[in-house]
Structure formats: structure tokens, C-alpha cells
């Protein structure tokens, strides 16, 4: 599974980077994003959901978050 590390990247750059990465991934594929605590973990999942992707889960480890997501159809 592909892991996209968005730690250290602030809003809205992290969301735009996530969008660009998802462009090269096939619909239905599961990927994970690493997100910082605070604004990123609050905003990025919601924005990706709004774009039609399916959020599968969120887990915390060592002060950052892993968001599991299935790419939606275009």
C-alpha cells in the first residue's frame, strides 16, 4: 500500500499535495496519508471526503495520524 507522508506540510498545501498524489492512483485503491496533529488532521480528511474519496479509518501513533482512504471514482 502506498504511503503519502504529509507531515511537516501546512494547510492548504497538504490537501493540494494529497489531491495531486491521488491523480496518479486508480479508483478503488487504498492509500494512507500521514498527517500532523492540529489543523492538518482536522481539515485534510474532511476535504478529501468532500472530493468524493472514502475515509476508512484514522489512527494515532507517536504524535501523528495515519488516515486510511479509498480513492473515489472521478
Amino acid at each position: 500500500m502506498q504511503t503519502i507522508d504529509l507531515r511537516g506540510v501546512t494547510c492548504p498545501t497538504n490537501f493540494v499535495m494529497a489531491k495531486l498524489e491521488l491523480e496518479d492512483i486508480e479508483a478503488g485503491t487504498t492509500v494512507e496519508f500521514l498527517l500532523d496533529d492540529g489543523e492538518p488532521v482536522k481539515n485534510v480528511p474532511r476535504s478529501l471526503k468532500d472530493e468524493g474519496h472514502k475515509l476508512l479509518g484514522l489512527k494515532e501513533q507517536d504524535g501523528y495520524y495515519t488516515l486510511l482512504l479509498e480513492k473515489g471514482a472521478d
Binding site: V41, K42, P45, R46, L55, L56, G57, L58, K59, Y65
Partner: peptide
Amino acid sequence: CIGCGLCAKSCT
């Protein structure tokens, strides 16, 4: 609910 915890994380 799938228990993902995103809501609790989002609730400021």
C-alpha cells in the same frame, strides 16, 4: 459508525 475516531479528533 465504524469507530474511526475522526469525529472525536475534529471536535474542538
